[in-house]
Design a protein around this nucleic acid. Structure first.
Lengths: 230, 230
DNA sequence: ACACTAATGGCACTCGATGCCAAAATGGAA
DNA sequence: TTCCATTTTGGCATCGAGTGCCATTAGTGT
């Protein structure tokens, strides 16, 4: 689903971490995540650094086999601090996903109004999942981790919900309905279904990915249409 | 998604608990769940009793506000024992869901071969979610809990996966494909998408549920078709 | 009564997560 | 420079889910 703007090298380069750290979408709770201001003590680490440390450990000990303490040690900060940057261990692999939702919204709005709604949504989803070849390997690893680790698979629905919402809102706007109405909701759910199927197929393929993610999403979409029309 | 065969009264009557307790689908691990055999010490409780106790507490303290210790006390058994009946706290609300999958499989097989695949699947899903009026209120409460509690919402994907698999296998068989191929997978994902949308709409409606679940699923399905054809 | 079998439940322990708070660390003002 | 307001850090205690271990209990069959 994701689509991290620029380059996001996983183990060696820089992690997503775009723009100055923003406030969490799931507002006011216990500790307030760092937001590198002018005044006050500067942050001891960054999302990027934490994710790099975490993925390094995940690669060797697996997700479940890596404790938060270990990640903290690897990142050179206190465990307590990690929990200020990420609400939970499960949130680490997703990184700054929220950030990309604005981009997704923009992509949908870019679609010409002449296009039928379903086609516009489809195009938006495809574009959202198209990115430079050099950003693909790390993205692939990230998604593989997420889609093959049960805990993460489960946790991800909470992320998907925000993503679906973007679609539901777009469809609602274009069909004069409310985002909570049945059709917009179905559109969101089905778009997610398509994407997930596509990702699973994508991850199954040999690394010499002949068909890219966009192509597979296209294929899943046309597959759905032919399936539904017998 | 579910469909517990007979009567399954939530707070007052009997919980699902059909058939003699079977082995867990996710096989051999730590403690082996009870399977009331002839020999040996008899079980101190049952899935039904545990679920009743649990739901009683969930109703007053909420899901998160209810500890496993509390459930154990309410059910009159040790905490350790509860964990032998359910792999996790999150598994309690779903009850013996696995059991219903065989029934689902049977429903699909019942569909006439003359019916187009998508129609057969649709019918199967609809039938799966049709049940006696007196079983509805508790089912509704159960699903409301599951679909409105983030932890449960997330955890449920693991259950849904098995359910989707049933569809993927059916579609694969009828289209001479493999269950892991793109189209069967998409069919499973999309059927789930439809069902979830329908459930959400169903739960939103006032209790005087004019349209039942089957009708809403139908509506979601036709909605999808018209959405996809502009 | 005795052996066999299988579930129970207490205990200790790991790990994720949270509240609390004193101790950094920084920029700006006196 | 020193003090101050500000903001993050990280240690500590605590809670709750989940697991391994194992002696105990409660049946069945002989």
């Amino acid at each position: 689903m994701p689509k991290w703007k620029g380059r996001n090298v996983l183990t060696s380069g820089a992690m997503p971490d775009p723009l100055p750290d923003a406030a969490p979408t799931t507002a006011a709770e216990g500790p307030t995540p760092p937001r590198s201001s002018a005044r006050g003590r500067p942050g001891a680490t960054s999302h990027a650094a934490i994710e790099q440390a975490a993925f390094r450990l995940f690669a060797t000990h697996g997700f479940a086999g890596t404790t938060m303490e270990a990640i903290a040690r690897e990142a050179g900060v206190g465990k307590r601090t990690i929990f200020r940057y990420y609400q939970s261990k499960n949130d680490i692999p997703w990184g700054q996903f929220d950030r990309t939702l604005d981009h997704f919204r923009a992509l949908l709005d870019e679609q010409p109004d002449g296009l039928p709604v379903h086609a516009a949504v489809h195009q938006g989803v495809v574009e959202f999942n198209r990115f430079p070849a050099d950003a693909e390997p790390p993205h692939r690893e990230r998604m593989r981790l997420i889609l093959t680790t049960p805990e993460l698979q489960a946790h991800s629905v909470l992320r998907y919900a925000e993503w679906r919402r973007v679609i539901a809102e777009y469809v609602a706007r274009r069909t004069q309905a409310r985002p909570d109405d049945l059709i917009p909701q179905v559109a969101g759910h089905v778009s997610l279904a398509i994407s997930l199927s596509a990702y699973e197929a994508w991850l199954t393929e040999p690394d010499a990915e002949t068909p890219g993610l966009p192509e597979i999403i296209d294929r899943a979409m046309t597959g759905l249409r032919s399936y539904l029309t017998g």
